[in-house]
Computed example of a mutant assay.
Amino acid sequence: MKPSMIRRACVAAVALAATTAPAVAAQSSADSGARGGTAAPSDIGAKARLLGEKIVPHKLSFRGTTVGGLSGIDRDPCTGEYVAISDDRSVLQPVRFYTARIAVDGAGVHSVDFTGTHPLLQPDGTVYPPASAGDGKAVDPEEVRVDPRSCDYWWAQEGDRPKSSEEPVIQPSIQFAARSGAYRGQLPLPPNYEITRDDWGIRRNKAVEAITFGAGGSVLTSALEGPLLQDGPEPTLQHGALVRVTQQSRDGGVLGQFAYPLEKIFTAPDGSSTYPPDTGVPTILAYPGDPSRYLVLERTWVAGAGFKIRLFDATTRDATDVQHIDSLKGQQIVPMRKKLVADLATLGLSRVDNTEGMTWGPTLPSGERTLVLVSDDNFAEDAVTQIVALGIR
């Protein structure tokens, strides 16, 4: 949901003005080899073009629920429809997902029609309590993926590191559910994904937002939204940061963990908000047929400048496995290599908003693969639920 509850003045105007910016460079500052990396070779380097977009009506009422907060999306290979998860923490209605038909082709996004919704259930069959309950059982849903083997739903929630020792810790989790929303199980997470009460572990609101299946469903990859506390500070105007990306087997065994180089903050805030700049990885998507290659979305918000959404082509190939390195500070490691695919501000969108989810769509006659993205409106009046389709080659 980040940046959660940020009031964004003039975001639409900034985003529209940004569409006139010059074309982005072929590779980002992270490609230059900072922290031991090397320039991205020909094994990565996808290109993207805008196919179209569609705005979902704000706070659309559907089967007794309020559509919004869509922070993750995936295409269902069993039906051809899409599933999207809402990050409503049972405040408006219980934690839930939606199914939808999205008509996408080379000419754009023609329609978005919701077809169903179900709550995601706890192991005892009940709905999750609201975040305000304070009993430690609330969740913060952020990502959903359809299991390519069973077509069940796997979903990630980032838990909560409390601000006070009097509040309960809610650990992040990756769960799997039946298509009805019934609880089916949980993936064991690596130990360094745990929230602790000291200066170690996952930051508040910077936990597991991104998961993806690769290698035909045999590998589940997760990415943290921001750096672990022990791995160094969050990005600033001067430097980026390293966030951990973990490949696991379906039973939870860690196959490898790698450091992804997050970009530095792109501009200084103008002082119009008390909220500091916010940046991170809200979603990651494996390439079919290449378990080491991913599309990675970086989402940044800065007061007065609005959102910058950038899409990168990245690989774990030749990167250092860091699963047994407690802290990345001062370590000589090789991070994941990445190359800029697109800055959404340069594609001609009506606006650039809080994009948090993405999935592969159908393949076009041209051979391009469609990429479908969704923005999380946080149920705010000045934000939108935007479905965007790109052609990737």
Rank of each mutant, 00 (worst) to 15 (best):
M1D: 02
K2R: 09
S4N: 05
I6W: 02
R7W: 00
R7A: 00
V11Q: 09
A15T: 02
T19R: 07
T20V: 03
A26R: 03
R35I: 02
G37Y: 08
G37I: 12
T38K: 09
A39Q: 12
A40V: 08
S42Q: 07
I44Y: 06
K47W: 02
K47A: 14
L51T: 05
E53M: 04
I55G: 00
I55L: 07
V56Y: 04
L60Q: 11
R63H: 00
D74I: 10
P77G: 05
I85T: 06
D87G: 00
D88P: 01
D88Q: 01
D88V: 03
L92M: 09
Q93P: 02
R101N: 07
R101L: 03
G106M: 08
D113T: 11
T117L: 08
T117S: 11
H118L: 07
L120V: 11
Y128S: 03
Y128G: 05
P130S: 11
D135C: 07
V139G: 10
D152S: 10
Y153T: 06
W154R: 01
Q157L: 08
K163D: 14
S164C: 11
S164P: 09
E167K: 15
P172W: 01
I174R: 00
A178M: 01
R179Y: 02
R179I: 04
R184G: 04
Q186N: 10
L189I: 09
N192Q: 13
N192H: 13
T196V: 14
R197V: 14
I202M: 14
I202A: 15
I202G: 13
I202K: 11
N205W: 11
A210K: 06
I211L: 00
I211V: 08
T212P: 00
F213P: 00
G214M: 03
G216K: 04
G216N: 09
L220R: 02
T221N: 01
S222Q: 10
E225L: 13
P227C: 12
G232S: 06
P233G: 04
P233M: 10
T236E: 10
G240I: 09
R244K: 14
Q248N: 14
Q248S: 13
R250D: 07
D251C: 13
Q257F: 09
Q257Y: 04
F258H: 11
P261W: 08
F266N: 00
G271H: 03
S273L: 01
T274N: 06
Y275I: 02
D278I: 07
T283M: 13
T283A: 15
L285E: 10
Y287V: 15
P288G: 12
S292R: 11
E298G: 00
G306V: 04
K308V: 02
A314G: 06
T315Q: 10
T316S: 14
A319E: 11
L328F: 06
Q331Y: 02
V334P: 05
M336A: 06
M336R: 10
V341E: 08
V341A: 10
D343W: 01
L347F: 02
R351D: 04
T355D: 01
E356P: 11
T359A: 15
T359P: 01
T359K: 03
G361N: 13
P362A: 14
P365A: 15
R369A: 05
R369I: 13
A380Y: 00
T385V: 05
Q386G: 03
V388N: 04
